[in-house]
Design a protein around this nucleic acid. Structure first.
Lengths: 211, 211
DNA sequence: GCCGAACCGTAACGTACGGTACGGCGGGTC
DNA sequence: GACCCGCCGTACCGTACGTTACGGTTCGGC
């Protein structure tokens, strides 16, 4: 089945279906791409027939699982009224530590691994979804903040996309690729806070206005 | 078979074996992780029996293939005598554009995809190899340059690792994760050059000494 | 010319897994 | 109570693929 390309991923799901997807998600974290339909059915205490009726095929189940996880992490848009340097700094540090927390979480690592593994062969369904709920969602939330700050003269840049990508690089650095490749790398809360503060300071040094 | 963990990956290989590994490499780029032993044998015009005799099993073949590719990209160490600001700038730009070229190449993408896909389940053999020949090799070559530049007062930092990771982030930004996830993103030579120059300028702004 | 080793091509085996079919059951409706 | 419907559990089917086995061919050494 070709799962419908709806934007929201958790809309018309019954509680039972959400339970099943949560089970699939946990299994995805534990087993990676080698989870089997049988294992999902057993873990969720449902029949394979039900899995196929609800999700069509294995691909449909994976897509629904990824969309379900994505729908759980939707965040409220940032309030960008009244922005000054301290609030901008705090906001950037918040974005940075949120992002570091996400990309170092077991769930994110597992989902990115599966999406990357399948990006080569299939019609890049999962990759687009993961990208859209990761990097792209971050950009959508951050760019208005950057542009508001530029409006107040707190930042100076020509292209918000370029500025965003610099911020992204300063924050993520090599963390995600190392974790995806299996590097043992434990990020504590304190380290995330320090790294976020450093990245923010560096970003302001590069893009801060009226120095 | 547990392939021996030798550091060099292309040492005791006959020409015929290199041909076979090159065929496997091409197939890996085309097919990703779903390459089959039959397909490799057919592409390399050899028998499966030979594949199993030489490489033990499918894992051994994949490991040998990744090591073989890694052995091909070994580069000469950088000459760090007589360093001044122009030569440092040129050197950093060289590192940056090399790295961007590597991570945007079909081969690197395919190898990273396979290594990431298997990093969750198997004994993280491939992930460690890819990491060691990617990020870690880059750090090994770049850090002496950074430290030499610090010795001349051209750069200022406490920890070479931290400085390196900032450089890494400024160069790579979101390029690698986007490509791994299947984002269509074509980097031209000119764009790589511009991005490398920008990253270098930003890195020097953050870590340049005696301003 | 003969022998053994290495190798090619292919057939065969075993298994794992995606997908389907079916019997049973509990719960809602009349 | 009779009926229906959605779902569970499980057995089953077909296939793909890793792995092994085997007959035939080439080639270097004697």
């Amino acid at each position: 089945m070709q799962a419908s390309l709806e934007i929201d991923g958790g809309g018309e799901l019954t509680e039972r279906q959400k339970d099943v997807l949560n089970a699939a998600l946990r299994l995805l974290v534990e087993e990676g791409d080698r989870l089997t339909m049988t294992a999902v059915a057993r873990r969720a205490s449902c029949s394979k027939e039900t899995l196929y009726k609800w999700f069509g095929d294995r691909d449909g189940l994976l897509i629904a699982t990824v969309q379900w996880q994505a729908s759980k992490v939707r965040v409220a848009p940032v309030d960008r009224a009244r922005i000054d340097l301290p609030s901008l700094t705090a906001s950037l540090e918040g974005f940075a530590s949120d992002w570091l927390s996400v990309i170092s979480s077991e769930t994110s690592i597992a989902l990115n691994r599966v999406a990357i593994a399948r990006a080569g062969s299939d019609g890049h369904g999962l990759g687009a979804i993961v990208l859209d709920n990761g990097r792209i969602a971050l950009a959508r939330r951050l760019k208005p903040v950057l542009e508001a700050a530029r409006g107040k003269g707190l930042l100076a840049f020509d292209d918000a996309e370029t500025a965003f990508r610099s911020f992204f690089g300063l924050v993520a650095r090599d963390v995600q690729i190392r974790l995806l490749l299996g590097d043992r790398l434990k990020l504590t809360e304190a380290e995330i806070g320090r790294d976020a503060a450093l990245a923010t300071r560096q970003f302001l040094a590069l893009y801060g206005g009226e120095r």
